[in-house]
Computed example of a mutant assay.
Amino acid sequence: MEILKKLLKMLRETDPETYFHTLRVTKVSAEIGELVRLSAREQGLLRCGAMLHDLGKLFVPKVILEKPSGLTEAEYGIVKKHPETGVTMAKEFHLPNEVLEIILYHHERVNGKGYPYGLKRDEIPHLARIVSIADAFDAMTSDRPYRRPMSTEKAVKIIEENLGTQFDSEYGSLFIQSLAGGGKKCWLSKKESRTAMSFNEFAMNRDTFVNTLIQ
């Protein structure tokens, strides 16, 4: 777990926005993991992989990540390399294969139109399918340089419309049902996530928070 903390520290210092996105994605992923009744071992692997899913963005130029308008085809091609770049870096730390699979496959789609390999349905490891939902949900409901955040309701509607195409139908349905049923809040608020480094309370408890996610 010291390796994981070092990688997260590197991400936090290099790209704070991606770091806080990672924390939120990990919380949502863990909630979905509970809904599908993962074993304790798989929950740990899921959390670890979710924390490192965007590790490869350390090597994407900030001018691209922070671009306030749409990306060119060439720029998008650079962004799409981050799963492979991330897994290459993660392999150096001898992380479990399931964690590497999350990093590599979290942008695959069940209809085969994702990247980097165009895998379909069960070809995509189930933990990566969970992180895919959490990643998309947070991306839609968070501020981006090129757009304002969507409402939770709109993000849920988009996920629902893309069950069986972009997202795993079973996992996505459970997540939507949990939110509709007043399930527990499983992500950081915008105030916590976007201004966390300005709040002494969060700074004092940040390591405790990360340790909780790792456990």
Score class of each variant (00 low, 15 high):
I3W: 00
L7R: 13
L8M: 14
M10H: 12
R12S: 14
F20P: 10
R24S: 15
A30S: 12
E31P: 03
R37D: 14
A40C: 05
Q43K: 13
L45C: 01
L46E: 03
R47F: 00
A50F: 00
L52H: 02
L52N: 02
L55N: 10
K57G: 01
L58N: 08
F59S: 04
K62H: 13
K67V: 10
K67F: 03
E73D: 07
A74R: 11
G77E: 04
H82Q: 11
E84S: 11
T88P: 00
E92Y: 15
F93W: 07
F93K: 09
F93R: 01
H94K: 13
P96I: 14
P96D: 02
V99Y: 07
L100K: 05
E101R: 00
E101V: 01
Y105P: 09
H106E: 12
H107G: 01
V110W: 11
K113C: 03
Y115H: 11
Y117S: 13
D122V: 02
L127H: 00
R129A: 05
V131W: 10
S132D: 10
A134Y: 02
A139S: 08
Y146F: 15
P149T: 09
M150V: 05
S151V: 10
E153Q: 14
K154C: 03
E160R: 08
L163S: 05
G164Y: 02
T165I: 10
F167K: 01
G172A: 12
S173L: 06
F175E: 03
Q177C: 04
S178I: 03
A180S: 10
G181N: 14
G182M: 14
K185T: 13
C186M: 08
S189T: 15
E192K: 05
S193W: 05
R194E: 13
T195D: 13
M197T: 11
F199G: 04
F199M: 10
N200R: 14
D207P: 01
D207Q: 15
V210I: 14
V210W: 07
V210T: 04
V210E: 12
T212E: 14
